[in-house]
């Protein structure tokens, strides 16, 4: 009887010790995973990769997308890089995504980490182009606009706007990125002629704000409250009578 109880106690203790040993390892393991998954928000993902969580959960790290890419854009992250180990990513400044219409990387993905819901490559959101206006040649007043001309979605993802300049009469032509159309392909970052690219691809959640529900841009929405502001459209009519281009010819201000 006593030996029975003793062996049971021993058995329970051994089980507890074994579980404790595993738990110790598992805690360190848990930390490693969290560290990798949370601390690496900068990677630019292949087109069609859904939210970071969804992508991380599904990717099996097989590299079939890497091999399917005809431009050798994608690479699998090596251990110790800034991207979680084994997941596909690309560095736009080295090789951007050239937006293949048949999306071969999506075709190759066996798990759906590169989501099949993406039907047109123009709808992909690999990242968002962001301009550093302090170092952008166009924003400094030189004629450049290379990003605009090379953008595969010219005029929708990147447009060029006229902007008056204080120093001289010459207007500046400045590029602007529109987040509703930018795919984050990175061709602009690749072609930017400055020493360090002045336009860069960044995961949108790192740079994009969100206005929130409680602010109303009355002049934009069609809600009943905003009907009173209808008259403001008259202003834009006045602007078009007097476009920015013409101001150089109307010397009365100087």
């Amino acid at each position: 009887m006593t030996t029975n109880r003793k062996s049971r106690r021993e058995f329970l203790l051994k089980t507890l010790q074994g579980s404790a040993l595993t738990a110790t390892g598992a805690l360190g393991w848990f930390y490693l995973i969290q560290q990798q998954a949370q601390a690496s928000p900068h990677a630019v993902r292949p087109p069609g990769a859904e939210s970071r969580e969804e992508f991380y959960a599904r990717c099996i790290k097989c590299g079939q997308c890497v091999q399917a890419c005809p431009f050798d854009t994608l690479d699998l992250a090596e251990a110790g890089s800034y991207v979680p180990v084994g997941t596909p990513y690309f560095v736009p400044r080295q090789t951007p995504c050239y937006l293949c219409p048949d999306i071969p990387c999506q075709e190759a993905c066996p798990t759906g980490a590169i989501s099949e819901t993406l039907e047109k490559i123009e709808d992909s959101r690999m990242g968002l182009a962001v301009i550093d206006i302090e170092n952008c040649l166009s924003w400094q007043g030189l004629r450049c606009e290379i990003c605009y001309r090379e953008c595969p979605l010219k005029d929708t993802a990147i447009s060029v706007e006229h902007q008056p300049r204080r120093l001289s009469k010459h207007a500046m032509l400045v590029p602007l990125v529109h987040s509703d159309a930018c795919t984050g392909c990175g061709i602009c970052e690749k072609v930017c002629p400055t020493q360090q690219a002045a336009i860069r691809i960044v995961p949108p959640e790192l740079v994009q704000g969100e206005i929130g529900e409680h602010y109303r841009l009355g002049w934009k929405s069609e809600t009943s409250i905003t009907q009173d502001f209808k008259s403001s459209t008259d202003q834009s009519a006045k602007d078009s009578e007097n476009p920015a281009l013409d101001y150089l010819n109307q010397d009365n201000e100087l």
Binding site: L32, A37, Y56, K61, G63, L76, E78, A79, G86
Partner: peptide, 23 residues
């Protein structure tokens, strides 16, 4: 996330032999 796949030395060795050497 697939817990073992994120730390697997098997995956690391195999991938890096095929796709390029890292840590």
């Amino acid at each position: 996330v697939a817990a073992f796949e994120w730390i697997s030395p098997i995956g690391m060795l195999h991938r890096e032999l095929i796709y390029g050497i890292g840590l």
